[in-house]
Every structure is written in C-alpha cells, then in structure tokens.
Design a protein around this nucleic acid. Structure first.
Lengths: 142, 142
DNA sequence: GCTTGAACCTACAGTAGCTAGAGGATGTAA
DNA sequence: TTACATCCTCTAGCTACTGTAGGTTCAAGC
C-alpha cells in the first residue's frame, strides 16, 4: 500500500496533481486509512503511469480519458486508439511547422539587430511593421 | 475613429481580447463616445498590431510588456530587446526539440499497431509500459 | 506511552490567455 | 421611427495544474 507521496515520487507527479486527477475522475477514489489518508495499490500505480506517459506525449486529458476507456475494454477495436494517436501526431506536426516558421522569423529579426539604441532596433521594428508579417491572423498555440 | 469591432477586424483580434488587454493594462484606456462606447485612433491600432504580431511570434504578454516599454523609450539600449528575442528563440528551440522527440515516439507507436483488438494494441501497450519511456519525468509544455 | 515532525487532509485561490454568455444600452441606416 | 447590428459590463468558464492556509494523522525514536 502506497501513500500519495510515494505514488507521486514513483510517477514523477505532484501530490496535488494526483488529487486533481481524482477530482476530475481520471483516477479512481482510492481506499483510505481510518484517519482518512489515501492508500494506493499497483492498479493505481499502473493507471497513473499510463496517464503521465500519455501526458508526456502531449495527449490532452480528454484524449487520455478515451485511451483509458479503450484500455479498460480489451475487446474494442484497436482502430480507435490508432485514430487518437494519429490525431495527436497531426497536432504535433502542425505545431512543429509553426514553431519552425517562428524560429526562422526570430532568427532573421535578431540577425539584423545592430546593437545600438532601441530607436534603430530591428527587433522592435519588425514587430511594429505588420506589413512584413507573412501570417494572415493565424493564432498561435505555442 | 475606429469602433472596437473595426479595430478587432483590422488586427485579427477578438473584441473581448481587446477589452481583456485593456483590463490588464497592455492597451491604454481609449476615448469614449457620449454613450460610453470605445473609440480608437491610429496609435492604438499600431500598438495592438505590435502586440498581435509579437503574440504570433510566441512572446508572452509579459515579454510584450517589456518590448512595448522599450519601444516607448527610444533612447534605451537595443540590447534588452535583443535579449528578450534571444530568450524567446531559445524557448522555441527547446519546444521544437521536444516536439520532434514526441513525433518520433508517436510514429514508432503507431507503426507497430496491428489493427486488431485493443488487447493487442501497441499504442496502448506503449503507453502502459513505462519501462520503455525514455524521459525521466520531464514535463510537457506542449 | 509520548513526543515530534514530516506528510497528509480539505478548501479555496491563482496561473496564462483568452472565450462565451447573459442581459441590457447605443449607434446608424432605411 | 424603427430595426438590428454592435456595443457595454459583469461573471463564469476553459486547460492542466500549482500554491497556500489551517488543521490532522502517521510512524519513528526515546
């Protein structure tokens, strides 16, 4: 039986985050001691590891909920899990593309900075001059 | 004199976002009509364009505040603006590296998916098996 | 058995950067 | 004058946590 602190350490999670996951129904309500403290078993350790691993791969909590559901029903089609992963990959690739564009523009901007006063600063000038801006009001999801 | 809606359209911002920027002090309080509606001039249009452009480049609102401050004081050293941009570039490159790693792992995961039942699903299996996880409890900022 | 102190508990507030909705007032064109 | 798009304020919500206050429980050492 693990305390919440031990579980936190084993999974690289903060204690509050575990309680938060419980609150939003991602983790089950665990057993308690007489005094009311949470105690966890291996099932919870596995589940939390799954969640954390998926988070590290950038899956949203909603996507993780779906994945956990699939995982809980071994008879379901693998295609759904694959679709979720595919969606995730697409998102990652979109972000990559945008970040690469940002890097290019940032580098260009800085490259032209003369090092003088802000009145001559290319960094500020580029930001000021939206006519040089190539994007057409796209949002940034960083 | 521009209404808030026109300003929003011209800069690709939502009306609520402009009011939000005013609320947090990023945009000045504009003049009002007798009836209390906001009216904007060119200075505000420029400032908002600057803000949006910087946001598109991934700068945080705090960083933008600093940049605006530098922009308002033409005598200050350009080095500060350069440092902010450099910090931003570093962050972008860190995110890029992480996203690239994610893409690799996602692809590997999906590549091995057989398409059968979830009980044999590699996607779920990889997520379950944290021994295969190469990262050591790093957080994801995606 | 008693003390001590780390770790636990709940509840609430705060973070970034918006976005959405309710319910009502204003501006403008026909 | 009337219609209706747009504006106003205020409040709450979103994601995914994180932090704090004020109090309780557990386990180890004496």
């Amino acid at each position: 039986m693990l305390t919440i602190g031990t579980l936190a350490k084993k999974t690289g999670t903060k204690v509050q985050t575990i309680r938060y996951y419980e609150q939003i129904g991602l983790m089950p309500e665990p057993g308690r001691t007489e005094g009311g403290q949470r105690r966890y078993g291996d099932a919870e350790l596995d589940r939390l590891s799954f969640v954390r691993h998926a988070r590290q791969l950038g899956f949203s909590l909603d996507a993780i909920r779906e994945l956990l559901d699939l995982s809980d029903h071994p008879g379901k089609s693998c295609a759904e899990a694959d679709a979720i992963a595919r969606r995730q990959l697409k998102q990652v690739e979109q972000r990559l593309a945008r970040l690469e564009a940002l890097r290019t523009e940032l580098k260009r901007m800085m490259h032209e900075c003369s090092g003088g006063q802000t009145s001559d600063c290319r960094v500020l000038e580029v930001l000021r001059d939206h006519s040089e801006c190539l994007t057409d009001h796209e949002e940034i999801g960083a």
